[in-house]
Design a protein around this nucleic acid. Sequence first.
DNA 1: TCGCTTTCTGATATCGATTTCATAGTAACA
DNA 2: TGTTACTATGAAATCGATATCAGAAAGCGA
Lengths: 341, 341
Amino acid sequence: MKKKSTIYDVAKIAGVSPSTISRVMNTPEIVAENTRQKVMNAVKELTFIPNMMAASMPRKRTNYIGLIIPDITNIFFSNLVRGVQDVCEKHGYSVLVVNSDDIQEKEGRYLKLLYSRRVDGVILTVAGYREEEFPKEELSLLKKMNIVLIDREINGMTTPIVKVNNFGGAYSAVKYLLTMGHKKIMYLAGIEGTKTNQEREKGYLAALKEAHINWKKELAADFRLDTAYQKIIQYWSQLKNSDKLPTAIFAANDLMAIGALKAFAQLKVRVPEDISIIGFDNISFSDCTYPPLTTIAQPTYLMGQKAVETLLKVIDKKKIKKSVELETELIERDSVSRWEV
Amino acid sequence: MKKKSTIYDVAKIAGVSPSTISRVMNTPEIVAENTRQKVMNAVKELTFIPNMMAASMPRKRTNYIGLIIPDITNIFFSNLVRGVQDVCEKHGYSVLVVNSDDIQEKEGRYLKLLYSRRVDGVILTVAGYREEEFPKEELSLLKKMNIVLIDREINGMTTPIVKVNNFGGAYSAVKYLLTMGHKKIMYLAGIEGTKTNQEREKGYLAALKEAHINWKKELAADFRLDTAYQKIIQYWSQLKNSDKLPTAIFAANDLMAIGALKAFAQLKVRVPEDISIIGFDNISFSDCTYPPLTTIAQPTYLMGQKAVETLLKVIDKKKIKKSVELETELIERDSVSRWEV
DNA sequence: TCGCTTTCTGATATCGATTTCATAGTAACA
DNA sequence: TGTTACTATGAAATCGATATCAGAAAGCGA
């Protein structure tokens, strides 16, 4: 590996001072045409590329932002990450992504890491599994950093947030099932501790209440495909042909809806003839399932973008809206059919 | 935002020199028990967390590594990323992930970015679309950095690489189709410029040759689901019932296999009754398709891990194997059936 | 008790940029 | 032509850690 050249090396070759090199690299317009030429030549000769790391010390900016998500492997989040990355790059920022696996303790550890790396700000999807109280140490870290929440709110906290109208989305999903004639609708729930799940649950209950429907049933899961798959298999095996079985399922996300689809394929329960399923998210595989999944679309990529835009304003101490709420959209495909009695 | 405390603040409170603070943070065992206590108290009082950014200057290590992949949104790569992240974290490294979108020009730009950030090393999936010659500027950057390739090789370059036995995997996929009685097997190709695609193609051809089968057909695509979907729709619409239609398809990756599945669903061509499909990768949705996809599994996560392990050795100038080649495994599911004549 | 280690700590230079301040040189104006 | 006002550049301090080197204090053997 060749030795890396510094601003001093360039200065020596160009016969000017290091300050001038810095000026040419950052504000070329303030240096005289012919010194600029000399410097550019020297830069080319050494193929000099400035050390951003070193620059961030006096600048007191690293131009990094941190992004904490549950799991990059989850296609919902990888989409969001891409939105974050693309906007960041446009503004000269780089993204440090870490996975909390929805575990609070990891979230805390990573927050500390991001702080020690002195990222300029953090976009945070709070972990789903957590104690009632926010740990003091983590809280003090949050106060020391520029934070924007994404996807999931924290109760009683005024941190800026970018999210989707979960209540509205869930409400319209269930409403849709109702208009299709379904009277027995089950909610396949996500991680209980997340505000996201709570809001979707409220939307589910609100729609039922409005339609004066008393039949309700929640199957507890955790947003994960395999868990949903197992829960469904288990529940249906126990209650074969019982009237406790719903005619439709509203899944708190597509991953679980797909898990359900997989379970029903194995159980030889036909979708949508025997049971209808609607998901939430519109992840990129939801049109490749069998049958293609009807779902509530979330603008995932856009959420990532908005979150960065908000964060950059926070960093630059500009005025911001405390909360950006994006709307969902019903995508009709083939996993829901009319239920005739 | 509270002011960030430095090693000097801690020193003042603890009544010792900054050097001692540094020692307590890095090599506590060499400082006397009771000064260590004093320092620890001061650290706690200020909730001091050292600035890694600043530390990396004299250390001449950033403890960052760069990871260039085509697209984080591609589930194949997001798995690999997770493998990279997990091992990195264990060794005190953080990962800076960027997306080349398989475009050489972006790859070059990001390489430069990573260099300017002075990452300790780079794990690189070379972009698929590129000119014949390796651009000089990019090449000189590669020489200045610690590089490990992953997934895709570069012709005529001795850079260490972690990959899978593509030839063998493809060969066994086609061999499997042959043993199932298929005689007309199409190859649904990935990006032509990638070594990965070339090797899989060779595996395909080798298996056919060995079986003395002359029927061959390649449908050019680009590893992407939508492209594969469109190509299939187009090809089948043109050649309805012609004997130019294969009885089985070997897709260069699962994403394209799933695109094909989607196309056939729409074309009312039954899988596997009318046509068999085998994929490559075993991405996490491949068991949720209809029918569940038979495929050649790649240890994606493991590849990420191995790449990091190799890279860390390169960074520490330890001896390494120039090339780590992992094996694939045939996963039999339901998208391939026996073909009886 | 003397001299020699060993243990522990502090002073200082350093990493590679930026930034402030000072100043030389030139232009502008009356 | 003298005063003022810019323009262009350099010198030096700074960011927050680490690392080297030197010296004080303590321990130990003879």
